[in-house]
Design a protein around this nucleic acid. Structure first.
Lengths: 181, 181
DNA sequence: CCGTACATGTAACGTGTTACATGATTTT
DNA sequence: AAAATCATGTAACACGTTACATGTACGG
């Protein structure tokens, strides 16, 4: 399906970047719904260049450090927009190791089961807290309807991550209540 | 991490199964949070047998059809329970192609963006409806506190799937409202 | 007897992670 | 001067999907 290809093209569609820049993008905001390591990114950039969807030119930083700055080509932009325009089928349900354990957890004593749920709850709440803080910092006092198109995209995916984590926390709380009854 | 290994051991911990039976399990209830194709299951069963965590004996169905019925060994049960007991770290955020598209969607005209959200909303609602129907059919009139341990595990993961889908539907509805404003 | 479900396997390919490998630049 | 960050790459391995390949049993 080449999703990494389109994630990279989507970033380059906003402006030229190096492989290192792209790696950093995947480690930040974008990381909430897609990610890749540099060991996957560099070969993919090479492949995209072979396919004529991107070009690079070398820029020199300081005395001799060479960076490859990648730019999307018209062909690349066309391919990217065609992907973006396609209707997206529902993905298969994402895998979830904790739910797998829950499914088999009748093999554990009740006390241990509850303990595991509580441990997950602490971690999920922490993650949710960080996401909410981030939202507050970026959009705290702003009416979301007044954002630019680009900011609105960023807002939507952050909000999506928050709703997902809230649902997980709700499930953990409900589960603990049920097990404790 | 060998998660498939433990998913299989977890199923065999409940009783002997063939590779075909395991394949069917992944295609049904369990499929809401873990799955694998038969092409992955048969080699994994062979590996588990080599490792001494399961044994199989051949049973004949009808005239000559041979089935391999796999049974978990004491070593296998020990390994499985040790995995089940381990505290589970938070997994990296699951990948989500539609959210990736959302992140880049400022490159599309507004009408198209809303259209895509509405298409997703229809599909997600359909999936949610199926899950809720399933819950109603299995537990409709029953007080969840009166379930056995085993039934409770099944109930919890189904409820987890429902909460996850509800959160996704909420996000899609919110997004459409914001984009339409 | 025909179609569906039962039953088991392998091969090729695509995707993703960890580890290996190297070196320059900037900050403390 | 040392440490952190910038910068780019490859190799080995693990995991997953699609396609190939074969044959039996059962219900209508």
């Amino acid at each position: 399906m080449r999703t990494l290809k389109y994630a990279i093209l989507g970033l380059l569609n906003r402006g030229p970047l190096t492989g290192y820049d792209i790696t950093k993008e995947f480690a930040s905001a974008l990381g909430n719904f897609w990610s890749a390591k540099h060991s996957q990114i560099y070969p993919e950039l090479k492949k995209l260049a072979d396919e004529g969807l991107v070009v690079f030119h070398t820029v020199t930083q300081g005395e001799k450090l060479e960076k490859k700055l990648y730019t999307i080509t018209p062909d690349g932009r066309k391919d990217f927009l065609q992907w973006l325009n396609q209707d997206e089928p529902l993905e298969p349900t994402p895998k979830d190791i904790f739910k797998l354990k829950t499914y088999f957890s009748d093999a554990l004593p009740l006390g241990k089961r509850i303990e595991q749920f509580q441990s997950q709850l602490i971690k999920r709440r922490e993650k949710l807290y960080i996401l909410k803080n981030h939202k507050e910092k970026l959009y705290g006092s702003i009416n979301p309807a007044s954002l630019t198109d680009r900011q609105r995209s960023d807002y939507l995916v952050l909000q999506g991550a928050i709703l997902r984590e809230e649902a997980y926390v709700t499930w953990l709380r409900e589960s603990i209540a049920l097990l404790g009854s």
